[in-house]
């Protein structure tokens, strides 16, 4: 593609693309070979971190921690892994405000999805105390003997 075309576009759309001294910048991404090669190294580092954290997650499950501690720790590690994927692989670390706006709505409604049923559940427990006694979360048992069988 010609440089003329490049100039044509940048004049027609005065968007801040985050230009810097490295070269061509497109949609927030620096497309100079040096920058891309640097990105590739970063992706490989993130891969190493994700692999290590996966092993940590498996390790935590073998520690025989109390149920809620294991869940909290496991979810914390999963959140770190998810954040790495979102930040670096999905480029949220350098994304546009509009995308964060979309995500803010998403997070809000996702939180409502989690909160709604829980709120209803504990409301029901207050209203029918007997429900509380019979529905305590319990420790593990063989798969085909528990859970709410159909």
């Amino acid at each position: 593609m010609s440089s003329n075309a490049s100039e044509h576009v940048s004049h027609e759309h005065p968007v801040d693309h985050g230009h810097d001294d490295h070269g061509s910048v497109h949609d927030g991404h620096d497309n100079s070979p040096e920058a891309i090669k640097k990105e590739i190294r970063r992706y490989l580092l993130v891969l190493g971190a994700l692999g290590t954290l996966t092993l940590v997650t498996v390790g935590i499950s073998r520690l025989h921690l109390p149920s809620w501690e294991a869940i909290a720790l496991g979810l914390a590690v999963a959140t770190i892994k998810g954040s790495l994927v979102a930040a670096f692989f999905m480029h949220l670390i350098s994304e546009r405000k509009l995308i964060f706006g979309v995500l803010a709505f998403t997070v809000f409604f996702f939180a409502m999805l989690l909160w709604g049923p829980w709120h209803h559940h504990y409301d029901a427990e207050r209203e029918w105390p007997g429900h509380d006694k019979t529905n305590k979360p319990a420790a593990a048992a063989p798969a085909n003997q528990h859970g709410s069988s159909h």
Binding site: L113, L114, G116, P117, W118, H121, T134, N135, K136, P137, A138, A139, A140, A141, P142, A143, H146, G147, S148
Partner: peptide, 15 residues
Amino acid sequence: FSTLVLLRTSAPSWP
């Protein structure tokens, strides 16, 4: 995920 959380916390036992 919400369904799973609700079922798990409500169940008398969960594997």
